[in-house]
Amino acid sequence: MKIAFDAKRFFHNTSGLGNYSRDLVRILSQYYPDNQYILLNKNTSERGKDILDRPDVLFVETSKGSLSRQLKMGKDAQKQGADIFHGLSGELPLKWDKTPIKKVVTIHDLIFMRYPQYYSFFDRKIHFWKFKKAADTADKIIAISEQTKRDIIHYLKVPETKIEVIYQGCHKAFKEQQSEGFMQSVKEKCKLPERFILNVGTIEERKNLLNIVKGIHGTDIPLVVVGRKTKYYQKIERFLKKNNMVKQVLFLEGVSMDELAAIYKLADIFVYPSFFEGFGIPVIEALFSKTVTVTSNTSCLPEAGGSDSVYIDPNNALDIGAKIKFLWENESERKRRVERSFEFVQKFNDQPIAEELMNFYQKII
């Protein structure tokens, strides 16, 4: 079987969509090396170079032009004799020739529909048009959670039979045991406290960092935040200065994947009170790292967190604070939840996801 991928995000996105693209191709190549996996893009990058070195993974430079991804990439896949074209980030090419090829698109979330206030009018219109067009063109749609599936049915008016939920996993670094020496070096380099709670993700309003900060106000619990700052950070900064909490919160940016994995493992508690997610990969990363997780009782987050994470109302800073404090003071409760959550998270391991993907492709063919 030949499967062609829109590899723009594979090569040029450092976080969510890029990680999804690289992990998907990596695990398919690892468990099903008899197929050929074709990465279509104008150019490559250092990202994913180890995957590109595999004999069953082929980079094909696409046709040039400002709209080549939309107008030519599909035909380029057909010229390569691909059986399936898979758009990995909610989009499919607009033009195809008559050569038979099955079309698949992964839709991660429709947050721009649920929370329009976070997007400009123009961006909302463009996103909706692209996603709706891709959903209509595709033979099958992959949703990364049951929540996303429900949203696709509701907002894009797609029949349920056209959608299959296939969860995603996380980077292998979170499943590996780093050496004591490396863990210590990360601790020293990042100036981490002896004990701390952790939050990971872009510092934006939807991720709800301010309610974590409000939740730990009046305690001496240190918080480490790993993520890119946006304008929303200024709100956090004002609250910290006003309440003499500046030294209680440590902000980190630009850490490597291996360093991030070590930081997860060093944390006592991972806190992720996002208002809405398509899936919530950081929750999976925490569970693989054997770090107890506090997350929202909304959207897909209970799907990712399982029955032994601790759930909060993301609008309620007192609820967030109370549950952090309870876990902070109860080591035995943290350990109990960690062990059971680690059993649960195995369903997001590479092999079961690769099997689901391959079964999905074979059914389409």
Rank of each mutant, 00 (worst) to 15 (best):
T298D: 03
D83Y: 01
E205G: 04
V213P: 05
G306Q: 08
G215F: 00
R9D: 00
K2A: 06
P116Q: 13
K133S: 12
R334A: 09
I353K: 08
P273I: 07
L28K: 04
H171D: 06
K102C: 09
A267C: 05
Q362A: 05
G254K: 11
E285R: 07
P352Y: 15
D308Q: 14
T148E: 03
R228Q: 06
D268L: 12
F196P: 08
K335H: 09
P100W: 11
L250K: 15
I269K: 04
V200C: 03
D97G: 04
K247C: 02
S274G: 11
Q168R: 11
K102M: 07
G74H: 02
Y37R: 04
C170V: 06
K247P: 00
I126P: 03
V271W: 02
E205W: 07
F275L: 13
R150Q: 15
R69L: 09
E253A: 02
E194N: 12
G227C: 01
R9S: 09
K191V: 06
R47L: 14
A7M: 04
E355M: 06
E46L: 11
K157G: 02
I153H: 01
K140F: 00
K335I: 11
K231R: 09
L357K: 08
L209F: 12
M183Y: 00
F288A: 01
F326K: 13
S120A: 05
V186W: 06
R150D: 12
I197R: 04
E205N: 07
R47C: 00
F122M: 13
T106Y: 09
L260D: 04
S309Y: 00
D23T: 08
H154V: 00
L67S: 07
K241P: 01
K191C: 03
P33F: 13
T298Y: 14
I365M: 10
I101S: 07
S299T: 15
V294H: 01
S341G: 15
K125L: 13
S332V: 08
S296L: 02
V246T: 13
D50W: 02
Y115I: 07
K49P: 01
D123K: 14
A7T: 05
E356V: 01
A261G: 06
F122L: 15
K265C: 06
E188V: 13
G321D: 06
K49L: 05
L52Q: 07
T148N: 12
F5C: 10
K98I: 07
M1E: 03
D313E: 11
K149L: 07
D6H: 05
Q178L: 08
K347R: 15
K132M: 12
I203A: 03
T230V: 03
I365T: 10
G305Y: 04
R238E: 14
A322W: 00
L301Q: 11
E180K: 14
E333P: 00
N13T: 12
P116A: 14
K191H: 12
S29A: 10
A317T: 07
D313C: 11
